[in-house]
Design a protein around this nucleic acid. Structure first.
Lengths: 197, 197
DNA sequence: GTCGAAACGGATGCTGCCTCCGTATATCTT
DNA sequence: AAGATATACGGAGGCAGCATCCGTTTCGAC
């Protein structure tokens, strides 16, 4: 029998401390060097051995997912703000922008996200968060479609992919002007032509 | 004085042979494993030492550019065919599709292309080919704009980026159906709304 | 055949990944 | 307070890939 209900022993203090330090350090390194940064370097700067890092986070993706948890909460906060306004078209637009920024948090982030998004079985720790985002996007899309602002053929997944692409392009140091034109191009691609607006 | 006009010595035969074998092998490996494949493995399969590979192609990008040369010629051929038809809108559409396929030739190809595209100084062997493609795209765009089929705000570079993104998404094993919807979305983004048809 | 330039190729040093297991330590027991 | 034990630590080590350097080989010229 596993001691599932109550643990027979209080969890050790150093575990939580190390985990927190690792997450903090990893976030800094992802920010500075991208998601491909050396995990050994992260471990060293967190003053733990590589073994400890890998015990806490078995794969790079697991670490990434844990670090991303914080950002996800920020995104949720923005989501709450977005849903305040009644205009579904505006809401969709802002949501897409929020996702794009979320995806641009660290350079190289779009790749693992894409990989996780198409996996049906949650073999990656990123699959669940991705599915949540896709579902959320779909809801914004449906609302905007219902109000006649978005073409019927558009799926939430399509715009998820679009946001991912924009983040990818952004991560390649493309100038903001070109990005704005691309965003506009995509927007006028999903918007209904004879919108009531 | 350098013997620039004529070489003082006939080029060695093994040089050309090795180069050809390396290109052939590299193409196979890029095709099977993507542009990130192990260069050591390529050298080994081509029956040369790593030193030889690096002497012929100092960087991964140099090798990639050389391999891509072949594909470029195919693209040029398609371009010739495209310019036959008089419809500029159709021509642009086909050109974009051709570029997308070109970019999808090997998995991981879009990244170095993007990196090369934004470099102004040809520090990468891929910069020149990229500029050629962008210029070509711009010409197709202008022609289509002149005929009133494409919105005035669109630049060739924008659609180059779009094609690159599509290839990137494609390289992440996205299903063809979603890709088609994205292509349609982009197309209806750059097309003029009140087109003459 | 000999010579010299040119090219070869693999040994080498480096970085990063990931695992395994002897050691250290936090918590529990009495 | 001190021993017992589960739990976690950490770094050594094996592996793979990159990129270089230099002693050796090979090709072409004469």
């Amino acid at each position: 029998m596993t001691p599932s209900g109550r643990q027979g022993r209080k969890p050790r203090a150093d575990v939580q401390r190390n985990r927190a330090t690792l997450l903090e350090t990893a976030q800094r390194h992802f920010l500075r060097y991208g998601v491909g940064t050396s995990l050994e370097a992260v471990a060293k700067e967190a003053c733990v051995g590589p073994g400890t890092l890998y015990r806490h986070f078995p794969t790079r993706e697991a670490l990434l997912a844990a670090v991303l948890q914080t950002r996800s909460e920020e995104l949720a906060a923005r989501q709450a703000g977005i849903e305040q306004l009644g205009d579904p078209a505006e809401a969709l637009e802002r949501w897409l922008r929020a996702m794009e920024e979320y995806f641009s948090a660290y350079s190289g982030l779009p790749e693992p996200l894409m990989a996780a998004a198409r996996a049906q079985e949650p073999d990656s720790p990123l699959t669940i968060p991705c599915d949540i985002l896709i579902t959320a996007t779909d809801q914004y899309v449906r609302a905007a479609q219902h109000a006649g602002h978005v073409r019927a053929s558009v799926r939430g997944y399509d715009l998820f992919l679009a946001a991912c692409s924009l983040a990818w392009i952004k991560g390649n140091d493309t100038d903001e002007e070109s990005l704005d034109r691309l965003r506009a191009l995509i927007a006028s691609g999903y918007r209904e032509r004879d919108a009531l607006a």
